[in-house]
């Protein structure tokens, strides 16, 4: 089997999806907030079906995210939703918890399952546990480093998906923490204005210059990283070990930004695949990203080259 790494990204609308396909994306994760977490925008089943229709002829895969922490209420509509995804012909379902796994097995066992429990997907043996129950792909937590990724890739037959670019979530609560705080300030006028506002961020005195975006949606409060992961310079390290899917996280970014990022990674991947031996990183690829990068957000290697303690 020849190795063909997948360049995966997110999209907020059909329009964005088209533009990002043109920029070189091989696959997308889309969905709606009722079932999926931190998405670029809402795609209802009809829009998902349309996305599949646009993508399939170009060999582009559409995966749907169902990785919310589900409560009892969502379960009633879950089987119908999974059937509609099956009819739409999606190429994969992303799950984080057993209720979704059980439902997909019952309603649409042919749809490949990707296990993504966000920051708790940290070892391949647990991934294989989900693999024995139907998962074909393992979406790695972002807090792992390169050595761990390399070890996992050699240890498991499951497909590995690794985020290479963009913002990451660092805290998720069911609580409405922004609303609570504004309430505490007795500033409910602001509440209306700011609700779901995506320009909100936190700072902390000891960390000058770091801005941690925070927002609320139907799934609670999300706090995001102050830097953007960027593995472009070293993406060949992931390609060398055969990582199956490289993900560009597009949430909280403009379409122009995401286009530039997808284009840059496309170039790097294509250059590597054309001739791995002769591959050399080209500074100009990164320049394309730097040109659109928010100056307040550093590009970083995330946890790829870190050791953590506990």
């Amino acid at each position: 089997m020849t190795y063909k790494p997948e360049l995966l990204t997110t999209a907020g609308s059909i329009e964005e999806l088209k533009r990002l396909m043109d920029a070189g994306a091989d696959a997308f994760v889309i969905g709606e907030a009722r079932y999926g977490m931190r998405l670029g925008g809402d795609f209802d089943p009809a829009a998902i079906a349309e996305a599949v229709k646009l993508a399939a002829p170009r060999g582009v895969n559409i995966y749907v995210s169902l990785n919310n922490l589900m409560d009892n209420n969502v379960l009633d509509s879950l089987p119908g939703y999974v059937r509609s995804l099956s009819e739409a012909g999606v190429n994969g379902i992303v799950f984080g918890e057993p209720a979704v796994l059980m439902t997909v097995r019952a309603e649409a066992p042919h749809i490949p399952l990707h296990w993504n429990a966000e920051m708790t997907s940290t070892n391949y043996r647990t991934a294989e546990y989900w693999g024995r129950r139907g998962a074909t792909r393992f979406v790695l937590a972002r807090e792992l480093n390169m050595d761990q990724i390399i070890e996992m890739k050699s240890a498991t037959k499951l497909q590995l998906e690794v985020q290479v670019h963009g913002i990451t979530n660092i805290y998720h609560s069911k609580r409405s923490l922004v609303n609570s705080y504004l309430d505490h300030q007795q500033d409910s006028g602001r509440l209306e204005q700011l609700d779901h506002h995506r320009g909100l961020y936190l700072t902390e005195d000891e960390r000058p210059g770091e801005r941690y975006p925070i927002y609320e949606d139907a799934n609670g409060t999300h706090i995001m990283s102050s830097d953007d992961l960027c593995m472009l310079e070293n993406v060949h390290e992931l390609l060398e070990v055969g990582v199956d899917s490289l993900k560009i996280e597009g949430v909280m970014k403009s379409i122009e930004y995401n286009e530039a990022v997808v284009r840059a990674y496309r170039q790097a991947i294509d250059a590597y695949m054309a001739d791995p031996e002769a591959y050399a990183f080209q500074e100009e690829w990164l320049d394309g990203i730097k040109a659109v990068q928010d100056p307040n957000r550093e590009l970083s290697y995330g946890f790829f080259y870190k050791e953590q303690v506990y």
Partner: peptide, 14 residues
Amino acid sequence: RCVLSNHFTDRDSN
């Protein structure tokens, strides 16, 4: 679902 400590201090919450 919290890795604040990982990000702030390189200590693994989980």
